[in-house]
């Protein structure tokens, strides 16, 4: 982590999505930056979704397709007049295909400081069970 400490953060443009499926409401849609890593027991996904509140976040997993949707709250009061606008505010959308079988019942999601942490536990492999035969 030594070189990471010395690094200066650079501006990265928020990635706007061209056409994310069917859009019913107008507005910009952005792709959140993610980290995905895997251990023996689980897959963890971290996504930067600034401005998204828990009730506006939707996580959907079906047929091995994980979909993240989040809507950032309105940026200030309508009475405010823009002076400098450098970033856009809108929805976040991203979809992933998972290769591992996930234990749906144990999925955990936590949203803190605009970062989503999603834990997807892998299905436990059928543990070998020893069957003892009792003599009759």
């Amino acid at each position: 982590m030594t070189d990471a400490e010395a690094k200066e953060l650079k501006v990265r443009e928020k990635q706007e999505l061209a056409a994310p499926g069917e859009q019913t409401r107008p507005g910009a849609v952005y792709t959140p930056d993610v980290d995905i890593f895997e251990s023996d027991t689980e897959i963890t996904l971290l996504a930067d979704m600034p401005g998204v509140k828990t009730e506006k976040l939707n996580i959907d997993l079906r047929d091995d397709v994980l979909t993240l949707t989040g809507e950032a709250g309105s940026d200030g009061e309508s009475s405010e007049v823009p002076v400098v606008i450098e970033y856009g505010v809108g929805k976040f959308y991203r979809q992933f295909t998972l290769s591992e079988v996930i234990d749906q019942a144990k999925i955990m999601a936590e949203l803190k400081d605009g970062v989503l942490r999603l834990t997807l536990p892998k299905v436990e492999k059928a543990a070998p069970r020893k069957i003892t035969v009792s003599a009759g």
Binding site: E8, L9, K10, V11, E13, K14, D48, M49, P50, G51, D75, G76, E77, S79, E80, V81, P82, V83, V84, I85, E86, Y87, G88, V89, D113, G114, V115
Partner: peptide, 27 residues
């Protein structure tokens, strides 16, 4: 959006007669 100073973080600045509002995305 997209025309920025090239320095992190990107900001949005708005105003009303009383105040300036400065916002930045810092997840």
């Amino acid at each position: 959006p997209g025309l920025h100073a090239g320095v992190f973080p990107t900001i949005n600045l708005t105003e009303d007669p009383e105040m300036y509002y400065l916002r930045a995305e810092l997840p």
